[in-house]
Simulated scan of single mutants.
Amino acid sequence: MQGQEILPAIATHLLDSARTNGGKAPSERDLAEHFSVSRGQVREALAILEAMQVIERRAKSGIYVNTDNTGIEAMAFLARAGLPLENRQIYEAVEVRKIHEIKAAELAAARADDENFDRLRDILVRSEERIAQGEGIDGLDQEFHLEIVRATQNTLFLNICTAFYELGGNRLKVYFRDPDRNRKSHEEHKQIFEALVNRDAALASALMVSHLRGAMSYWSELLQPAELSD
């Protein structure tokens, strides 16, 4: 097994094993035997997963998987590896992403430069073309929103929001299967863009709130835990 394949493979195996073993994962030796790799390779992979808080080592007890206490970086890693996340994790990530993007619109109105505006214009043009061809704009929607975050000129902010999008990439494709939803989203993107160009932070933020409200309503129906919807 190649080095780049070991980490997601071990993560998948750990999660599967933990679900049927009270959260406890196999030992280093068992993992090395299962994947036919050295214990050093296993130890290195586990160290990365521990740093991301996917697992924890308990003295004299073994390795345990933290399914309920996973940080955004770890959740993004699991999503990239194709591993399923809990509905609560996804819903909470969507909720926090909304908070970040509203603030991003406000900051971008003051900080966006000509390159940001050029990229946003290009995204809107390509969105028009995709819609005219009857195709979804899921990838372009992500580009548009992340370009607004990039326009804040805050790299850490961009890294955080990129991680949020990695959690829901496949779900965006489902969301944008509806042609009406594509057109509505595109029109709202154009309004947000105009507010940014006019340096109207209050309007850009308000338009982003309205824009994300529809998406939040959609995801709430699909993902919101029952105990939160009572």
Rank of each mutant, 00 (worst) to 15 (best):
D141K: 12
K190T: 08
E135Y: 02
S210F: 15
D180F: 12
L207T: 04
L207I: 04
A206T: 12
L120A: 11
L212P: 11
A132D: 08
F117S: 00
I160G: 05
A201C: 09
A163C: 08
A195Q: 06
D141R: 09
D178S: 14
Q153C: 00
F164Y: 13
A132S: 04
M208N: 13
S217W: 08
G134R: 09
A195L: 03
Q153A: 14
S185E: 09
D200K: 07
V197Y: 02
A132Q: 08
G168E: 13
A204T: 04
F117C: 04
G136R: 07
H145L: 08
Y165I: 00
H211S: 08
F144V: 00
R199P: 03
V197L: 10
L140V: 09
V149Q: 13
E143C: 07
E129S: 15
A206C: 01
R177G: 05
D178P: 07
T155A: 15
C161S: 10
F157W: 10
S220G: 15
A195H: 03
R183Q: 11
R213G: 03
S217C: 09
L120R: 03
E135P: 01
L156I: 13
T162M: 11
L167E: 08
Y175N: 02
S210G: 06
R150G: 03
E129W: 05
H145T: 06
Y165D: 06
D180C: 11
A163S: 15
S127R: 14
F157G: 07
Y165R: 12
E129Y: 09
N116D: 15
F157T: 08
V197P: 00
N159E: 15
R199K: 06
I148H: 10
I160R: 05
I148E: 13
L146W: 09
R199N: 00
R171V: 07
E221I: 05
D178G: 10
S210I: 12
R121H: 07
A195D: 09
V125Q: 14
H145I: 04
Y175M: 12
L124C: 02
H145S: 02
R183A: 11
P179H: 15
L172A: 13
